[in-house]
Simulated assay, not measured.
Amino acid sequence: MDDLRLLQQVGQEVPLASSDQLAPARDRLLAAMTGTPVTPAAPATIRRGARRGRRFVFGGVAAAGVAAAIVSVLVLAPDQVGGDVPAARADAGQVLRNAAAAALRLPDTTPRPDQFIYTRSQEGRDLRESWMSVNGTRDGLVRTTSADGTADAVIPGCRNGRAAVVKGGQVLPGQTEPCTPEPGYRSDLPTDAAAMGAYLAEHRSGEPGSVNSAGKDVYYFAGGYLRPQSRAALYEAAATVTGLRAVENVTDGAGRPGIGIAWPSTGGTGEMVLVFDPESYAFLGVSGASAVLALAVVDKVGQTG
């Protein structure tokens, strides 16, 4: 029996915790994610610079919505992961807890500082590929293919506090500007649900108590490269939010079917629906918006896995 099959067997033999067992932690996490003071504090290693990276993603890269299917070198076949409760009969919290259990069965790979995070996604009708420096010091690239053709945009690395100036997607020779490295891989994210809930509360992108904004923060992190423990903690924290509901028979931005987790809107802009595979519980994307088709760690710009 290989290691992955052994992990699968062990995971299937360990039942998920009941709702009663999870209730105390759920209450603490819900308070954290909605802005109420909580007992657990975010780890001291979390950098305040995380907010700057979020502005980049929401401002440009994810205007159509960031989403991810953890595929390529990261995802097991659908019959190798999954929780105990079929998605069609589960509530939103159960689906997210199943996704957390499935995440813990994924291979655990730590990217090297000199590597890149490769992502291939569909944003509306456009295909987008990106190579982001793991530690933020090396030049990355975003390639967009649309009906009008293919366009490349350089993402300059930040070295010794300076980065090249980019205009129209191209580097201006000899010109630099002050910078702070924006890593493509977040090594500082919490690995347990309580700390993750506190982190999401501290670094929220919206107003305290906004469930929809909390959902955007969840899909922002879920759409990136996370180690299994952090991904599981993210889903466990999300499972504590009240007002979520499971939606059957939805599709991600690439048309892949799944079960949705609907995050209600407090501003009248409509629900945001995160889509999970109904068998493997892999995160597929955002309904009607986008889907990531590959996510991998590579050695250089241009590699795809």
Rank of each mutant, 00 (worst) to 15 (best):
G136K: 06
T137Y: 02
T137S: 06
T137F: 04
T137L: 05
R138Y: 01
D139P: 04
D139A: 08
D139Q: 00
D139N: 13
D139L: 00
L141D: 06
L141K: 02
L141P: 10
V142R: 06
R143G: 00
T144S: 10
T145S: 07
T145M: 01
S146H: 00
D148Q: 14
G149I: 12
T150E: 04
T150D: 01
A151K: 05
A151R: 13
A151D: 14
D152E: 12
A153D: 11
A153M: 08
A153K: 05
A153N: 08
A153Q: 14
V154A: 00
I155A: 03
I155H: 06
I155M: 07
I155C: 10
P156H: 03
G157I: 04
G157V: 07
C158W: 01
C158N: 03
C158L: 09
N160G: 13
N160I: 03
G161M: 02
G161W: 02
R162Y: 10
A163C: 00
A164L: 05
A164P: 01
A164H: 09
A164G: 01
V165G: 11
V166I: 06
V166Q: 08
K167Q: 14
K167Y: 09
K167S: 14
G168R: 00
G168C: 07
G169Q: 05
G169L: 01
G169D: 07
G169E: 08
Q170V: 13
Q170N: 09
V171A: 00
L172W: 09
P173S: 08
P173C: 00
G174V: 02
Q175P: 04
E177P: 03
E177R: 13
E177I: 08
P178Q: 12
P178F: 03
C179W: 00
T180V: 15
T180C: 09
T180E: 15
T180R: 12
P181H: 05
E182A: 13
E182L: 14
P183R: 02
P183L: 00
G184W: 11
G184N: 09
G184V: 04
G184C: 01
Y185D: 06
Y185M: 05
S187C: 06
L189C: 04
L189N: 11
P190K: 06
T191A: 14
T191Q: 13
D192K: 04
D192M: 11
A193F: 08
A194M: 13
A194K: 11
A195I: 08
A195F: 03
M196Q: 09
M196I: 00
M196R: 03
G197Q: 10
G197R: 01
A198M: 02
L200F: 11
L200P: 04
L200S: 07
A201D: 11
A201Q: 10
E202W: 10
H203Y: 11
H203A: 04
H203E: 12
R204T: 05
R204C: 03
S205G: 10
G206P: 03
E207H: 13
E207W: 10
P208H: 02
S210V: 07
S210N: 14
N212P: 12
S213L: 10
S213A: 15
A214V: 15
A214C: 14
A214L: 15
A214Q: 07
K216I: 14
K216H: 13
K216D: 13
K216C: 14
D217T: 10
V218R: 06
V218G: 12
Y219G: 02
Y220E: 15
F221E: 14
A222C: 14
A222V: 11
G223S: 12
G223Y: 07
Y225N: 10
L226C: 01
R227L: 14
R227G: 09
